[in-house]
């Protein structure tokens, strides 16, 4: 296996692991939203500004989970493509070797067609991989966007929390946990993007 193939396998595998962490965190946000909603309900008028925010947080968490689920399916496709490309590259190399070893054989020329065919299907695979990586990067970008939005909401939540009297602390804790979660998502997705960006379609 070449270093290039190895790092491709690692890049694809790392997406899945980073994303499963994102999934956990997104679920935490969803929980924080439910928690916040309950507190805001109890706080009544004092947390009036907070109530729409909790719906917003919840919505954001749901969308993130959905996105990540889709990306995971995509990552699996990418993994299969990587395996496929690895096999096709191996075949192409063996065919070339066979053609070289067959030099001087009566039917050596008949190897040309399999060699050409293997080269084309290997290149097809490589192109497909690059296309899919570009798409995946687009989807990861959407998750980043969500994470950034979540941080803005967290900041707003803090402001709203400051007006919630005795509920200040618990609402601030909600804002804190949303902010932390958004941070984690941002970092993990960023790592995915860096791992993949070298394979993007130029």
């Amino acid at each position: 296996m070449t270093n290039q193939t190895k790092s491709q396998f690692i890049a694809v595998a790392s997406i899945t692991s980073e994303l499963s962490a994102v999934m956990v965190v997104a679920k935490e946000i969803s929980l924080a939203a439910a928690n916040a909603k309950a507190i805001a309900f109890r706080a009544g008028d004092k947390a009036k500004g907070f109530q729409p925010i909790t719906d917003f947080i919840n919505e954001l968490a749901k969308e993130t989970i959905e996105l990540v689920t889709n990306i995971n399916i995509y990552a699996l496709v990418l993994y299969r493509l990587t395996v496929d490309e690895y096999q096709k590259t191996a075949a192409y190399n063996k065919f070339e070797l066979a053609a070289k070893m067959a030099e001087g054989a009566v039917y050596a020329k008949s190897m040309q067609e399999p060699v050409d065919h293997a080269r084309l299907s290997m290149q097809d695979c490589q192109r497909q991989f690059k296309r899919d990586v570009s798409q995946l990067l687009g989807q990861l970008e959407a998750v980043m966007h969500h994470a950034r939005a979540a941080r803005v909401i967290a900041a707003n939540s803090r402001i709203e929390a400051s007006q919630a009297g005795e509920y200040l602390q618990s609402l601030q804790a909600v804002a804190e946990s949303v902010d932390k979660a958004a941070h984690t998502i941002h970092d993990n997705v960023q790592r995915c993007r860096i791992a993949l960006s070298i394979y993007r379609n130029s």
Partner: peptide, 16 residues
């Protein structure tokens, strides 16, 4: 053994 085997067979038969 694939490559040496294929190369050896090509002394006797074309791939197709």
């Amino acid at each position: 053994l694939f490559a040496p085997m294929m190369a050896a067979v090509l002394h006797h038969a074309p791939v197709d």
